Computed example of a mutant assay.
Amino acid sequence: MNTHGDDTDLLDDYLRAALARLGPADFEAVIRAADATCLLLADGQPAVLAGPDGAAFGADLQREYLALLAVLITGRTDHPIVPLPGPDGTCGWAVIEHHLTQDPRTLADFCTRAADKARDSARTGTALEQLWRAS
């Protein structure tokens, strides 16, 4: 739900709930990643994620990170977040608008198109990396 009275802070409420869901170490990793992402993006740089103790971000931390960025960018907490299976079997996530969730076919079509685009982007990235290494 996205309705808050004038005396509540939407981000504060969201962060308290995220801390309860994640625990201190994972929460700190998500906050640090979101903060670093905001700084990098503001400076036109790509973002790199690292979990607690420098470990890779797992699917749960990726989802929380994406949810936090959605709150920071839109000022709303009501975006659905849907899983997107990756070509290698790992799970990715997408923040979507509610209208996409109203019809199962529309949602499935969106997820298929997003997965196809990710697969195409991965192939393009691999091809570009091979060209770069060959030169």
Rank of each mutant, 00 (worst) to 15 (best):
M1W: 10
T3Q: 11
D6I: 12
D6S: 13
D7E: 15
D7P: 07
T8M: 14
L11K: 10
D12V: 06
D12Q: 12
D13N: 11
D13H: 11
Y14A: 04
L15K: 05
R16M: 09
A17N: 09
L19K: 14
L22F: 07
G23K: 06
A25K: 09
F27V: 06
F27E: 05
F27A: 13
R32K: 15
A34V: 14
D35V: 06
D35P: 01
A36T: 10
A36I: 05
T37C: 09
C38Y: 11
C38L: 15
L41M: 14
D43L: 14
D43R: 15
G44M: 06
P46V: 04
L49F: 14
L49M: 13
G51I: 08
P52A: 13
G54Y: 07
G54K: 03
G54N: 08
A55R: 13
A56F: 07
F57T: 03
Q62W: 07
R63K: 14
L66Q: 02
A67F: 03
L69M: 08
L69G: 03
V71I: 06
L72V: 07
T74L: 01
T74I: 02
G75N: 05
R76A: 03
T77K: 07
T77L: 06
I81F: 00
I81C: 00
I81T: 04
V82F: 00
V82T: 06
G86S: 04
P87M: 05
D88M: 03
T90S: 10
G92A: 10
V95K: 02
E97Y: 04
H98E: 15
H98P: 09
L100W: 08
L100K: 01
Q102F: 04
F110V: 01
R113W: 04
A114Q: 10
D116M: 07
K117D: 08
K117A: 14
S121Q: 10
R123Q: 12
R123Y: 10
G125V: 01
A127T: 09
L128A: 09
L128G: 04
W132D: 10
W132L: 14
